[in-house]
Each structure stands twice: as C-alpha cells, then as structure tokens.
C-alpha cells in the first residue's frame, strides 16, 4: 500500500513555487487508485462514512471519518488518514478526580492505547532498533495534551476536565498527526469550545525531496538512510497548525525525528505556511461536521428561519436559548 501525494523539490525554492501548482508527483499509486482500493477492500463495510471524493485531497492521503460511533462519550470519531486508522473519544467538560482538579482552568487528560501492548511488542521493537514503544505512546499523549491546552477554552470550565481516549487501529505512518486530527474532529463533534481549528501534517524529508503525509513504507525508506550521510537530510517533520491569520497558518507545534538541514527545513516551512495543506484538512473537518448536522449548502435559510421562530410562551428556557453575553 503506497503513498498518496508527494512533491519533489529538485532545484531550490524558486522551482518549488511552480511545482505546487502542477499535479502532485506520486511514485507509486495515484490518489484515485488508492481511494478505489480503500473503498473496495475494507471501507465498504461502514454504512455511512463522511468521506470526501479523492480529488479534494491533493497533498495528504485521502481521509475518511465516521462521527458519533460510540454511545457514551460526548464526541467520538473513527478516523482514517490513508490506511492509518484511529478511534478518538472525548469526554468533557466532566468531573475529574480531586487530585487532578485545577483551581483556574480545566485539566486535560489524554490516554493513548496502542494496537499491540505488552513486553512482546517491546522486545520486537527494541530488536528492530526502534524506540521504546511505551515511551512513544507517552510522547504522543503529551503532544496531544500540549496542543489541546492551547486550543480549548479551558478557563471556562474551572475544576473540570477533558478526557480524550485515542485508540490505534492501524498504523500506516503518520500516527501522531492522525491522532491530533482525530482528536480535533472528536472535539468539534462534542461541541467543545475551541479557539481555532487546528490540524496536523507530517512531512518526510529524504535528501532534497519532500513527501507530504508519507505512508509506512516511505517512512521505512527514510529511516534506513538515516544517519548514513551527514550532508543529507533524512527525517520526519510533524507540524501542528491553525487555520488562523488570514491565509497564513500559525504553527503550534513542530517535532523532528532524524536530521533535517536548514535548506530543506525552509522548504518545508514554505510548503506548510502556504496554507494549502491546512485548508485541505480543515475543509474535510468542515464537510464531516456539516454532514453530521445534516447541513448542505443548498438548503436555504428560509427553511431554517421557520424552525427558529419561537413564541415566548410556557417554554421559558431550553438548552438552546441560554444567553451568556451581551454585546452591542
């Protein structure tokens, strides 16, 4: 199962500007082929998935999501990014244990559950020369906690807590960015108040080529050549971005695995700050939520105004009529 989208940057930054406008280069499968495979093989089993047609994904691998899959959590989602699949569930704002309560804001707690647990997995990973899986799990949790603390309006819910549970179903590369994206989608569907919409994207850098949202095989290729040539950059960059500031996204979080030289780093920053990748992912969030709320662009305002008209009669307040702020 190969990549979706990738971009080659062969001759410096000036070339790169032109490359962006062309159809993305993909060495293995085209996006449509990957999408066809996904729909055929395993995704047909889901009855109603908020999927967007493959043509809307030019940079990242095609995403699919199903909202409200679980009964109890306030918001839950099953989220695919290519073949990487994550389940996210959000409880919040809810009560937390006394020991975790904070006097000035809500606490955020994230639990990541990997596909395989136990020491068997650990020894296999260590034998393959990879990092301690337990450590990686904690690292993912801490990354998500850090992002959520800056995104949720925590000061509104004093002494409360937000619990997020992430469950890895399938890992085909870019697990961290899939976790962040799934969490944000779950928060949106739970109706939590956020400052901004954020999304995560991983870039694989090998030599002077940059791959957006690499799959497991591409990551393996990058890892094989890691540390071989000191003059070449081989690494993975994970960005978490907001969709704010007009068309220039703000960067919330960057993490790097491996070595990335300044010239390639600059290329990556330029690619990410162009805002096209963010727009693509957040657009997908938008479509998912609008599908969940049964909202389509076509159905006009007239119909909605009809529903909204309420007479101030016996019903004094319902959950929708709460009014907290006055503005002029």
């Amino acid at each position: 199962m190969e990549s979706a989208a990738s971009e080659k940057h062969e001759e410096g930054e000036e070339e790169q500007q032109q490359d962006e406008d062309e159809t993305p280069y993909c060495p293995f499968f085209s996006n449509s082929e990957l999408f066809a495979f996904m729909t055929k093989e395993r995704f047909l089993r889901e009855e109603e998935i908020a999927g967007v047609d493959e043509s809307s994904f030019q940079f990242v691998r095609p995403m699919r999501a199903k909202l409200s899959i679980l009964e109890n959590p306030h918001g839950s989602v099953r989220f695919w990014q290519g073949l990487t699949c994550v389940i996210a569930a959000v409880y919040g704002p809810s009560d937390v244990r006394m020991s975790k309560e904070l006097p000035h804001r809500a606490a955020v707690d994230v639990l990541f559950r990997p596909k395989v647990t136990g020491s068997g997995n650990m020894s296999a990973m260590l034998a393959a020369g990879l990092m301690d899986p337990l450590m990686e799990e904690r690292a993912i949790e801490q990354t998500v906690v850090g992002i959520l603390e800056s995104v949720i309006h925590l000061e509104d819910h004093v002494q409360a807590g937000f619990n997020v549970i992430l469950h890895e179903i399938e890992n085909d590369g870019c697990l961290v960015s899939a976790c962040v994206n799934a969490t944000v989608l779950a928060l949106l569907s739970a109706g939590c108040s956020l400052r901004n919409v954020v999304c995560a994207v991983t870039l694989g850098v090998s030599g002077d080529s940059v791959v957006v949202d690499p799959c497991a095989k591409q990551i393996q290729d990058i890892q094989k050549s890691m540390g071989k040539d000191a003059c070449k950059s081989n690494g993975l960059l994970t960005f978490v971005l907001t969709n704010s500031h007009g068309f220039v996204p703000q960067i919330l979080h960057v993490s790097c695995k491996g070595r990335v030289l300044p010239s390639e780093l600059k290329t990556c920053y330029k690619l990410v700050c162009s805002g096209k990748i963010v727009q693509e992912v957040v657009r997908f969030f938008y479509l998912c939520i609008s599908k969940d709320l049964k909202y389509s662009e076509g159905n006009g305002v007239e119909k909605i105004e009809e529903q909204v008209e309420m007479e101030p009669g016996e019903v004094e307040s319902s959950s929708g009529d709460e009014v907290d702020e006055d503005g002029e």
Binding site: H74, G75, G191, D292, L293, V308, E309, S319, E322, V323
Partner: peptide, 17 residues
C-alpha cells in the same frame, strides 16, 4: 441560528448538559 429579538447562537449536537 437567530431567535426573535436579535439573539444569535450556534446550534450543535451535544450530549453533555
């Protein structure tokens, strides 16, 4: 959504009160 006397709010699905 808009309620009659100039009140604006967002309607969403929510399970927590």
């Amino acid at each position: 959504r808009k309620a009659k006397p100039n009140t604006f709010f967002l309607e969403m699905k929510t399970r927590s009160y």
